[in-house]
Design a protein around this nucleic acid. Structure first.
Lengths: 108, 108
DNA sequence: TTAATATTTAACCATTTGGTTGAATATTAT
DNA sequence: ATAATATTCAACCAAATGGTTAAATATTAA
């Protein structure tokens, strides 16, 4: 019970934790796609893909443009940077740790 | 039914999608901790923290050293790099897209 | 050997997740 | 107006998740 999941980083990582959704991001990186075009890429119902897109949208990783009955989805990766930044901190830490370890080893 | 979740990236992103587990990573970035020390940081049962650590371990984000009855957990961030690399691809793409957009705007 | 400590495992529970199908809602074409 | 198309929404389901408590398993200390 973490009370209503406030951290936006949660949304981003949750969104990226599913292979189907990562595929959606991958496809959208090439070009924006309508829902119909997107659904055509998966062996899954329209509704299922629709739900996945909603998860990505909720994490602000994609943006939707509605023209008439056609919904076009495009990448909106500002929040990818948040995830990147978070990971980078620990990645950098690890890198420098490794470097210090190398230094220590070299001093032998 | 994506048949048994094979992609190791799944494990990493799933592991990072929980705020408690990100806190564990944060704590371990400072120094390795025994299970008891780790549990003391959370308002949660030993068993619950134990499960979270297992998720991180499963994603190869932490490593466990057992000495007698004491389990010491430390960061093992090789896999953080995998997540970082994945995100970087799309982040870079976005960055260059933005740059081109700026170029177009400037040409006005 | 007995007791205390460190930890996992098991059984359970409520909620969330990822999928389904079918109905509802708009929009566009005939 | 009617039919076709694009999409969401609702109800449902099975499996996974994140938590609990209680019991089991080592290991160490008295």
């Amino acid at each position: 019970m973490t009370s209503a999941t406030k951290d936006p980083l949660d949304l981003v990582f949750v969104a990226l934790s599913d292979a189907t959704r990562r595929s959606v991001v991958h496809l959208l990186a090439l070009k924006p796609l309508t829902m119909t075009a997107l659904v055509a890429e998966f062996e899954m119902s329209f509704a299922a893909v629709s739900k996945h897109v909603k998860v990505l949208e909720n994490a602000s990783l994609v943006k939707r443009t509605v023209v008439g009955r056609v919904h076009t989805i495009q990448l909106a990766p500002e929040n990818l940077t948040k995830a990147l930044d978070w990971i980078s901190i620990y990645n950098n830490f690890w890198q420098s740790r490794l470097d210090s370890l190398e230094d220590i080893i070299k001093k032998d």
